[in-house]
Design a protein around this nucleic acid. Structure first.
Lengths: 196, 196
DNA sequence: GCTTCCCAAATGAACGTTCATTCGGTCGGC
DNA sequence: GCCGACCGAATGAACGTTCATTTGGGAAGC
């Protein structure tokens, strides 16, 4: 029942795991091939080069994440619940897919991410940004540049997942909830807030 | 008037710039040497290997950062001011030393950072953690695991600096101040906070 | 003061390895 | 028998590292 796509996926998964463990530099194409159960040459039937493979893997992961996000989002919820739901489900996605998280983190901090226009990256960022923008415009969130706000919030999500995964700090639903509350307290607009 | 240390520093600086631009993988020793104005072999008089060079550069940067932090900290301040001062000066350090920031970010997301015990890394993390711990213990900050809190806050600092450096969002003292306020609102303990 | 010797610092061509990529060939479906 | 998918040994370039050699300056001997 193995078709073309399955082989491609095997290559993707193999690359993902190896890059997480060894970094881009430390993962030879030969080992990607071996772990994927294919020959070295086969990779070049599916991808032009190692760089292309990495770039396409990035898009692949990004799309998988976007799907997961959109599936869990519920526009009918009130804003706070939607914010919480979004934050937590996003965070849980990272926690459940550590390979994806570490790959993404390495990727965005590498020269790969600057070579490509990454234009359709926009769709991913916008999904998130729109939620924040709505919050700012309706006065639920603080009146801060929504680009800055969404980047900050995304940072807290990634960070929380990393803390959970790297340090040995037990972090269940309760702790996650505590952290979102904290983020929310920072981001939300406090009408009666006038002090020196 | 050039002594041993100057050569080492030249190698460090050269590595820092190249790693930022091209990543660990993309910076050959030969180019590090060329940009530092030394011969390839010279690097090996000062460092055992490329890995050692990277590891030592990491320590070098970390210590420079620690010095900058400690110099600006003022234990006599009241807690909130001290928190703000710390956050902002830390953030400004990153903004003024983008090469250091991007190097560190690449480093911690690379396999290098797991190979080494990094025991004296503790001293760096503790400086920050102690400030947060004090806040939690005196009830100024929310009663959350201080390890988590300090990691979260450090994340916001790094993130803010990156937003400033990567996106073209103008971010002066005023915007920075706005962001710390926001972080502070999230982290501080709100005594009369009981709601559902 | 001059010469000699010494050694650490520095050099850069050469080496051996590793790795991305290529290519001639096999196999199975149509 | 043709075609696309797949294989894996072969290739060649790039890279980290080595080493025989040069350089420069300071100490010792006279």
């Amino acid at each position: 029942m193995e078709n073309i796509t399955d082989k491609k996926r095997a290559i993707f998964e193999s690359t993902l795991v190896l890059v997480k463990e060894k970094g881009f530099h430390g993962t030879p194409m030969s080992q990607i091939a071996k772990n994927a159960g294919v020959a070295a040459g086969t990779i070049y039937h599916h991808f032009d080069s190692k760089e292309t493979l990495i770039l396409e893997l990035y898009s692949y992961i990004r799309d998988k994440m976007l799907d997961a996000m959109l599936q869990l989002d519920n526009e009918a919820m009130n804003y706070k619940d939607r914010f919480f739901n979004f934050w937590i489900s996003h965070c849980l996605f990272y926690i459940k897919n550590p390979n994806a998280l570490f790959f993404m983190e390495q990727f965005v901090n590498s020269p790969y991410s600057n070579r490509d226009p990454l234009q359709d990256n926009e769709r991913f960022q916008n999904t998130f940004r729109d939620l924040i923008k709505t919050g700012v415009e309706t006065g639920v969130l603080k009146s801060v540049n929504s680009l800055i706000l969404s980047a900050l919030i995304h940072g807290t999500i990634v960070n929380t997942a990393k803390i959970h995964l790297c340090r040995r700090i037990n972090m269940g639903q309760a702790e996650l909830q505590q952290i979102v509350e904290l983020i929310w307290d920072g981001m939300r607009n406090i009408p009666n807030a006038s002090k020196v």
